[in-house]
Write a protein that binds this DNA or RNA. Sequence first.
DNA 1: GCTTCAATACTACTTTGGTGGTATTTCCCG
DNA 2: CGGGAAATACCACCAAAGTAGTATTGAAGC
Lengths: 221, 221
Amino acid sequence: MEIKIGIVDDRQINRRTVIEKLYGYSEFHIVLQASNGRDFLEQCKLAEELPDVVLMDLEMPEMDGIAAISHGSVSFPSIRYIVLTIFEDNDKIFDALKFGANGYLLKEDTHTNLVDAIRNVYEFNGIPMSPAIARKAMNMLVGRESPQKSSKNSIDQATDLSKREIEILKLLVNGKKYRQIAEELFISPLTVKKHVSNIYEKLHVSNRAQVIQLVHQQKWL
Amino acid sequence: MEIKIGIVDDRQINRRTVIEKLYGYSEFHIVLQASNGRDFLEQCKLAEELPDVVLMDLEMPEMDGIAAISHGSVSFPSIRYIVLTIFEDNDKIFDALKFGANGYLLKEDTHTNLVDAIRNVYEFNGIPMSPAIARKAMNMLVGRESPQKSSKNSIDQATDLSKREIEILKLLVNGKKYRQIAEELFISPLTVKKHVSNIYEKLHVSNRAQVIQLVHQQKWL
DNA sequence: GCTTCAATACTACTTTGGTGGTATTTCCCG
DNA sequence: CGGGAAATACCACCAAAGTAGTATTGAAGC
């Protein structure tokens, strides 16, 4: 059985590393290499033989991996994608899977893992992933972490709390008392108290219960 | 490193099988065996040493594994759970993970898988699971299948709070003070205070901040 | 160099919250 | 019917939280 492979990564050295990991497995044929999402999609349009499985980096100039998978899974539905990245970013994992990725591996994974993953995706329609990724995915699934849409909405933008105030707010929400917070930050409990008062004023609440409610409603932290 | 193991299964032969799988690994000490959820929780209450990791069957008379994990993860938060079942039921997987299970293995898994899973949960806080389970979980995550909502998840099942206590808890979590709650329910503030104390005791917390945190973590209300 | 503001620290005071009791009534279950 | 929760109510005591104000330092910006 022949499996046609595509590799999309902006760094030549990364593509090279992948190729080396696959070296010696004669069922794999690299039929496409691209340096970003746009490049990948254009090559697909022109290609006479599409890859079966594409190993896709996420962080790329011009068009990133998630956009590429999103477009590609519509235009070329036969292609399966395995994301290959160095990051364990929650949002990225979730987005990639949502937009059609079939697997998610860390670049540090061994070559046998990579080979298994490709076969798994190709033959069994499986969803291979690194244990570290699987753990994060499960946490998202069961709601211990939330798959927020892309990043920087949260508290920093939503309020004009200072860095220190946000730091204190986090501890406050975790049920810590003034004294405990003070110990953790090496400052006086009275200072903590002052900060908390300021926080209440800025957020227009008047006690802990309300501030914790607010934080959860707004899904900050 | 010694890892204390608990086994909960209604069939003696299943417990026996598990014990045999662990045989020869001297770091594992079986410190608790129970034949259903209720039995398990009662033994925990009396035990002088709690297990670190509990291998939990799901289908059991009296109290099933999900209920046991749900209660147990509140009352004995140090314990980690690996579900061991013959089924690949979507709802069950989802519920078990939601209510605090840390891993999900099929009974047909090999003994080395089981040993690895226990170590993984204990040492790294990981979420080990059989590949078949992982694939289903991922499908749920990315919405290719839906984790049907499990109607009877909420607070009533998860705790043994009385109706009145739950009513008061809701108001408490909304940031109300004793006096405000009292007015709303037409009872004395002192009664409210008493109820709240009882709630803290049952949930093993000691102040508002903690109880609000808990409610949100468990996604009650 | 001056202004601004975050971060620090403190005092004094009031209000609310949490613990450990006791006691009564009501209502359900065996 | 009797026993046991659950819900009600109260007290006393101490801990913690919240309010109001002042003051100093240090870094960032103009």
